[in-house]
């Protein structure tokens, strides 16, 4: 199977998953008690039954569940995610304004994770069971164990309060401004730490495993320099396991950004989601959840493709 056919096949497999993702998103919000209209009615006894029905119609909450889903998914496919009840902004508008903030944060987190984890993992594997390895293992274990919200608070405590390098409450520059990098440091580290630690562990294990394989001895027997053996032969094989992990880590970074944005008061989609949940903004909740699901499915797809590029054996399954 050529790489192109492999990609095409994976893309087709994605379609039913995306459909399922939309069903789950919808079901989550609609199969449980407490839609915003009943809440509105509960809070405001003056609303008449006729008005309630009208409100339901307005927000697409009348009819059977199936009809509601059809209306919703139809609107979503045409780019209409409905309005925010509280502010009557369009949900799509909120998404578009918040998205860059979250992307900036997530990207910073990913880059931080890779830059820290890959060299450390390689170092640890090469120096297995020596001091540096032990130290990096303890750090990695801490990294996967530390709750990100607490890490964020601690970074603020140290970086902003004790060292005074950052000003917690101060307004930041626009998201595209280069100075933004400075403001991204603390939340970026917070969001990337768990991923960095996971990659470090996987990198170490898979690298150590690869180093024991016979092709490494064979490469040495060919007289290749150690550097080349590690960077060319071993690293590429070890990266295969990291790529398998990458989609999972993307999910962890997405989930992490929800918490971290709240800690750092970062105006992204995650903080928006928390606020939407507190405010029972179901259109917003559904839109962000659906978006998250889509994003992760696509990340999975990308990881699969990257996997096939790195490992020629996969394409021939």
């Amino acid at each position: 199977m050529s790489l192109r056919r492999f990609i095409l096949k994976r893309l087709l497999l994605t379609v039913p998953i995306l459909f399922g993702v939309s069903v789950i998103t919808f079901a989550l919000v609609h199969l449980t008690p407490g839609d915003p209209i009943s809440q509105m009615v509960a809070e405001n006894p003056n609303v008449s039954q006729a008005e309630e029905a009208q409100l339901r119609a307005q927000y697409g909450l009348d009819g059977t569940l199936w009809e509601q889903y059809a209306t919703w998914i139809g609107n979503v496919l045409s780019g209409d995610f409905g309005d925010v009840y509280g502010s009557s902004q369009s949900v799509a508008g909120v998404l578009i304004s918040r998205l860059p903030e979250t992307i900036a944060l997530g990207l910073f987190g990913w880059v931080f994770a890779l830059v820290i984890a890959i060299p450390t993992g390689v170092y640890a594997a090469i120096n297995k069971d020596k001091f540096g390895d032990t130290a990096s293992r303890i750090i990695a274990l801490s990294g996967i164990s530390i709750p990100n919200f607490w890490l964020g608070l601690m970074l603020i405590l140290v970086g902003a309060l004790w060292l005074g390098w950052w000003d917690v409450g101060a307004p930041r520059t626009a998201v595209y401004h280069p100075e933004m990098l400075w403001f991204l440091i603390l939340p970026g580290i917070t969001v990337g730490t768990a991923a960095a630690a996971s990659i470090m562990r996987v990198m170490r294990t898979s690298m150590a495993e690869e180093l024991n394989k016979e092709y490494v001895v064979a490469a040495r027997a060919k007289g290749l320099p150690e550097r080349k053996i590690i960077l060319k032969h071993v690293l590429r094989n070890s990266m295969i396991s990291v790529v398998t992990l990458a989609a999972m880590l993307t999910a962890s970074i997405v989930a992490g950004s929800v918490v971290v944005e709240t800690v750092f008061n970062w105006p992204g989609l995650g903080r928006e989601l928390v606020q939407a949940i507190h405010g029972h903004e179901i259109n917003l909740i559904m839109a962000i959840t659906l978006f998250t699901g889509f994003f992760i499915v696509l990340a999975n797809l990308l990881a699969d493709i990257l996997y096939a590029v790195l490992d020629p054996r996969i394409r021939y399954d």
Partner: peptide, 24 residues
Amino acid sequence: MRIVDMILAFPALILAMIIVSMFG
């Protein structure tokens, strides 16, 4: 397994958040 794939498309924390927001 496709059902599992669909569920795993969401971070567990986000699903938990929404469930809690619905049930209290």
